[in-house]
């Protein structure tokens, strides 16, 4: 396997992991399958597009065309995407969590509401911006590195590094902060969490905003490779959901491993001459279905060795 393929696979895996980990955390701690994750993705992309479009003249005026200008633009892009993602999380909290979280059928109803939100948002974007693709400024530039005889594009490297950084930050937050501990406690036993003085309403908001921000980050990173369009969130949503399921919903490490697996699988299928790019989705689904039929709890089921 050559290095280019590995980098490509890592690139895919990084984006998938951002989506899947968000979906997985949200499901196990709050009990919402967030179908609006794709909408969050698209909204963040558009927010970044609008904001960078507005900031470009300002930044050009302040820094000219120096390296500082690129840096400021990158900051503006990432920050706007993150903030838009978090705000989407807030909207989901207000619509799909707060009114119904102690009513019957909460999980199914939350799924339906987020699904409705997804459709409504995507259609609104289509209506307002039209189906045209929008290109965002390339914050990593267009160059390539020569490493061990293969070329690595800057945006690929940037995506991998950025995603790894964000994932590491998220995991560290979950692991070491007090709020993260509360989230993990709620993921594992909601009733026990209540007995430990952890409020569901107070924990759900940061989790929803965090997962929204993760989707925003994924949008910002993916915008370096492909264009932003109203429906650009659908494929990441479906991929994120499938990978979260493959990882065994609720298992963060399972989702990470699943993202890596699927990333490599897609890269390999795309590279094999007689299969090619057309069979990527096909192959991934078949792989996931096969794994789930053999191990119904996904990869997380293999990792979890605690007693029932």
């Amino acid at each position: 396997m050559d290095l280019g393929l590995v980098v490509y696979a890592m690139n895919l895996a990084a984006i998938y992991a951002l989506m899947a980990v968000g979906i997985s955390i949200l499901w196990s701690s709050v009990g919402v399958i967030n179908m609006a994750h794709g909408a969050t993705f698209a909204v963040s992309g558009y927010a970044a597009w609008i904001f960078t479009g507005a900031m470009k003249p300002v930044i050009a005026g302040a820094f000219g065309t120096s390296a500082m200008a690129t840096l400021a633009l990158a900051g503006a892009l990432v920050a706007s995407a993150l903030i838009a993602g978090a705000l989407c999380g807030l909207v989901i909290y207000l619509l799909a969590f707060l009114p119904i979280h102690d009513k019957p059928n909460f999980q199914v109803r939350a799924l339906i509401i987020t699904l409705g939100l997804n459709i409504a948002t995507v259609q609104t974007l289509l209506w307002y911006f039209g189906p045209r693709n929008q290109g965002l400024p390339k914050i990593f530039g267009f160059g390539r590195w020569e490493v061990l005889g293969t070329r690595i594009r800057y945006d690929q490297a940037g995506t991998i590094i950025g995603a790894t950084l964000i994932m590491a930050l998220t995991l560290a937050w979950l692991r070491y902060s007090r709020k993260g501990l509360e989230v993990r406690a709620m993921m594992q036993n909601a009733e026990g969490a209540a007995y430990s003085g952890i409020s569901r309403q107070a924990t759900a908001l940061p989790v929803l905003m965090l997962t929204g921000a993760l989707a925003g980050m994924a949008a910002a990173l993916l915008s370096q490779t492909i264009f932003v369009s109203p429906t650009s969130g659908t494929i990441p949503l479906v991929k994120g959901l499938t990978i979260a399921l493959l990882g065994g919903l609720g298992s963060v490490s399972g989702a990470l491993i699943a993202a890596l697996l699927v990333g490599f699988l897609e890269a390999i299928i795309g590279a094999v001459p007689f299969l090619g790019q057309r069979y990527v989705l096909f192959g991934t689904f078949i792989f996931i279905i096969a794994v789930l039929v053999i191990r119904p709890r996904g990869i997380g089921g293999l990792l979890d060795d605690t007693r029932e």
Partner: peptide, 11 residues
Amino acid sequence: ILVALCMIGVT
């Protein structure tokens, strides 16, 4: 959008 809003409202 109207259909989606109906769906959200009803749910």
